[in-house]
Write a protein that binds this DNA or RNA. Structure first.
Lengths: 304, 304
DNA sequence: CACGCTAGCATACGGTGTACGGAAAAGGGA
DNA sequence: TCCCTTTTCCGTACACCGTATGCTAGCGTG
């Protein structure tokens, strides 16, 4: 196995607490340890956390996936010198994904880009999955986080805009993580900053999470639409260069008007033309809705 | 090439109008033809459509992708009898995708499921891409469309709920079509019905499209979250069975509390616990926002 | 029966991720 | 200096993928 230099955890654990991490002694890591150190909510938090966690299972698969992100290995002093850095690999991967989308991201392709053999990449990265994680993390590092003290509305707007810029700069991100974003440091930084914008508005915590999800989702949708739209003029394919061709010949050859009267009407009126604006317009509406929710939460809190 | 029994179109066309379709003479197909037949908006529509379409290019790739959906071949009378039907193949593909997600959908796997050789599938389906299209179309056929006369709000709510049910029933759909839904009959039926719910509310056509996109997007996001959540209890993997394992060992081993104070606080307060309700709650908020947009459109229309 | 059309499929090609094991280079200790 | 350990580098190989090609078996029709 590659990457044995990273510390190995015990398998299915007996005492999850003791086995925590080898190089302890700095700052508390893990919610349980944190609560015991009195950082957040002390004992109650520890109980809650441990109850929720139950038996912590560490599969090598999981360890492999998280280790590089959270515990990057120190550069080796002994042995043959490396031609590349991890960042070289990640950057090359990003470049490949930039033109051609995530489908084009093959290990052999990235290796060729770097002028090395395919298997050499596995010196730097345990596999393709982890490479993608690292690429995502690197992309999120560009995020210009809203500051801590800012009032919630401009801060949340900034969060949305930054997310928007991120997707437009790295459309391939939308092709990853169908279900959830990877547990990468800079990704969590962004989420932290996002939550921070509205956590002190008096909303119940569940709604805080829900609302941030709403914003994420909204931006993601707008970005998807905008990228698909851009693929029309740019032939710089995200794999969808020919979508417009399809569209054209479809409208002409197969579209049945009396089956789709509304679509025809909307089409004729130009409803499908506009690229639904550069975010701002409808984002304000969303923020309005959120503001209403915040006001409502404030009033019910003072009433009940 | 398989499927030569489907009619061939000319290549890059000279006169897009004349070449339209071989078996004409029934009902008008194509927006241009439709407008000329006086179905929708007559001459103005035809001009608009033709201006927008420009030269219609028909690549064999596109034809191949749309032909089966819109022009299913008549069952052959001559030659050896088929063991399977197209629907058998599509249903088997859906079954495979149901357990194991879209990644597990390989031609060989589907063939094995049906007890035939891998290449036999290509008698029924031109390729994997088209199989997925057909699967999506079949799934959308389950859609219980809102009726034409219904008032917009319950109709749109029904649309959202049906979409929601669709995603929960067929989570693999979320793994397809990163940018746009396929141009399949039942998919367009759903979109038609969706647009129909709000097209007569006085909103400008562009906003009609935009709002339906918003709803689609919202539902999609909620479904994604809900499915990811469900993967926790169900080990019936959408490929994410081990996500929760990851989560657990992550919180315990790598999470740094003072880097993520807000997340810790929200976590301790249980903000990440709830599966954010079965759609209804926040959908009403979205509908509220839409209602506001409709009211605004009505007032500005009467004013200006 | 023989012809022609069709379904069914074995084989093969070029692609993928990656396990394995050997070769090459560098540093540290004897 | 030599050697030994550590690390990089990567050729080869395997299992899997989608699918082009072309053969064969079954069927309806002349």
């Amino acid at each position: 196995m590659t990457h044995d230099r990273t510390h190995e955890h015990a398998g299915p654990t007996d005492d999850p607490h003791a086995a925590a991490r080898p190089d302890d002694g700095e700052r508390p890591r893990g919610v349980v340890a944190a609560a015991e150190a009195g950082v957040a909510g002390a004992v109650a938090a520890a109980e809650h956390a441990r109850a929720n966690l139950g038996e912590v299972v560490r599969t090598p698969e999981v360890t492999r996936r998280l280790a590089l992100l959270w515990d990057p290995p120190a550069p080796a002093t002994r042995g043959r010198k490396a031609r590349l850095t991890l960042d070289d690999v990640v950057r090359a991967g990003t470049a490949v994904a930039q033109e051609g989308g995530l489908d084009a991201l093959s290990m052999r392709r990235v290796a060729t880009e770097l002028g090395v053999g395919a298997m050499s990449l596995y010196t730097y990265v345990p596999g393709r999955t982890e490479l993608v994680d690292l690429m995502v993390d690197r992309a999120y590092a560009e995020f210009d986080l809203p500051h801590a003290g800012d009032p919630w509305r401009p801060a949340l707007a900034q969060y949305a805009h930054e997310m928007w810029r991120l997707y437009l700069r790295h459309p391939w991100i939308l092709q990853t993580n169908m279900w959830r974003a990877p547990l990468a440091p800079h990704v969590l930084d962004a989420q932290e900053a996002g939550l921070r914008t509205i956590v002190d508005t008096g909303l119940p915590e569940v709604q805080v999470v829900e609302i941030l999800g709403l914003v994420d989702n909204y931006v993601q949708g707008m970005a998807r639409a905008s990228i698909a739209e851009a693929a029309e003029q740019d032939a710089t394919g995200m794999g969808t260069d020919e979508y417009w061709t399809t569209m054209n010949s479809f409208w002409e050859d197969w579209f049945e008007v009396e089956r789709y009267p509304t679509m025809t009407r909307v089409y004729v009126a130009g409803g499908f033309d506009a690229p639904q604006g550069p975010l701002d317009a409808s984002l304000e509406r969303l923020l309005d809705a959120i503001e209403m929710a915040i006001d409502r939460a404030g009033s019910t809190a003072s009433t009940g």
